[in-house]
C-alpha cells in the first residue's frame, strides 16, 4: 500500500523545471532510495513533500489524505519528518531541548493536554527523550549546546530530532554527506533499526554503496523526471541510469 503518493508533481523556479511531472510512490514499511546526479531535483522533491515549496502542479497524498496544500508543520503532525542535507539544528539550544521542541506529533497532541505539553517542565518528556538519546548515541550529552557537538554527533542528533515527532515517514536528505566509512556503517544500522520499528524511509543519497546496501527499491531522477525505478540490482543494470551518471553509450 502506498504511504506517500506523488502524482504529476512539478515545481518550477522561473523557467527552470526543478521537478517536472514526477510520479512517485513510497510503500508502507519500505526503504526507498531516491538517487540522481547533482541538480536532478532530489532536494526539491523533499522540499515539496514536506511543504516548504508548494508544488506548481500535481497532487500529493499521504496516508490516504490529500496534503498538497497542507502547511509544513501540519505535515509533521500527520507523520512526515525530515533531516536536512546541510544540518539545521537549533545551535543555541541544548541537545535535550532540540529533541524536546520537536515533540509535535499527532500522538503527542492526543496524549497530553495543551498546558502540560507547552508549559510542563522537562520531567513529562524524560522517558521518550532518554530513548532518543540512547538511539543517537548521545546519552550523557543532553546538556551540551547542539552547536558544540562534533559533526557526526550533529547528524545523529538531527536524525533523532526527526524521530522525536514519531513519524510514519522519514525523509533523509543525504545523511551520509561528509561521513567516513565507519560512520556510514553506523548510519546503515540506524536506518534499518528505524524501519524495524515500522517507520517508512525515503533515503536521498549520493553514496551508492549505502543506497544499494540498505534500500528495498530505488527511484532515479534526472532533469526533474523519474527515469528508472526498481530493485537496487535492476537499477545497477539499467542503461538509462548508467547514461545519466556516466554519459555516452553505456
Amino acid at each position: 500500500m502506498a504511504l506517500l503518493e506523488l502524482q504529476g508533481v512539478s515545481r518550477h523556479f522561473g523557467g527552470v523545471r526543478a521537478i517536472d511531472g514526477l510520479d512517485l510512490e513510497v510503500r508502507e514499511g519500505e526503504i526507498l532510495g531516491l538517487i540522481g546526479p547533482n541538480g536532478s531535483g532530489k532536494s526539491t522533491a523533499v522540499n515539496v513533500i514536506t511543504g516548504l515549496y508548494p508544488p506548481s502542479a500535481g497532487r500529493i497524498a499521504f496516508d490516504g489524505r490529500d496534503i498538497t496544500a497542507a502547511a509544513t508543520h501540519r505535515r509533521l503532525s500527520e507523520g512526515i519528518a525530515r533531516t536536512f542535507q546541510n544540518i539545521r539544528l537549533f545551535g543555541g539550544l541544548t541537545v535535550w531541548q532540540n529533541l524536546w521542541v520537536a515533540q509535535n506529533s499527532a500522538r503527542d497532541r492526543a496524549a497530553r493536554g495543551f498546558l502540560s505539553r507547552w508549559m510542563g517542565g522537562q520531567s513529562g518528556a524524560r522517558e521518550g527523550i532518554g530513548k532518543l538519546l540512547a538511539f543517537a548515541g548521545l546519552a550523557g550529552r543532553e546538556d551540551e549546546l547542539a552547536s558544540n557537538l562534533a559533526f557526526g554527533e550533529q547528524r545523529r542528533l538531527e536524525f533523532a530530532r526527526a524521530l522525536a515527532a514519531k513519524p510514519k515517514l522519514l525523509l533523509l536528505d543525504e545523511p551520509a554527506a561528509g561521513m567516513n566509512a565507519g560512520e556510514i556503517a553506523d548510519l546503515d544500522e540506524r536506518i534499518r533499526a528505524v524501519r524495524e520499528r515500522g517507520v517508512t524511509v525515503l533515503l536521498i543519497e549520493h553514496h551508492m554503496e549505502l543506497v544499494m546496501a540498505v534500500t528495498d527499491r530505488v527511484a532515479v531522477l534526472n532533469f526533474g523526471q523519474k527515469i528508472a525505478e526498481g530493485t537496487p540490482a535492476q537499477i545497477q543494470a539499467h542503461s538509462a541510469v548508467r547514461k545519466a551518471y556516466l554519459g555516452g553509450d553505456h
Binding site: L52, A81, F90, G91, A165
Partner: peptide, 10 residues
C-alpha cells in the same frame, strides 16, 4: 534560531 528547521520540526 532557525525558522525553516522549526517549521520542519512541526
Amino acid at each position: 534560531e532557525d525558522e525553516l528547521a522549526a517549521q520542519s520540526a512541526g
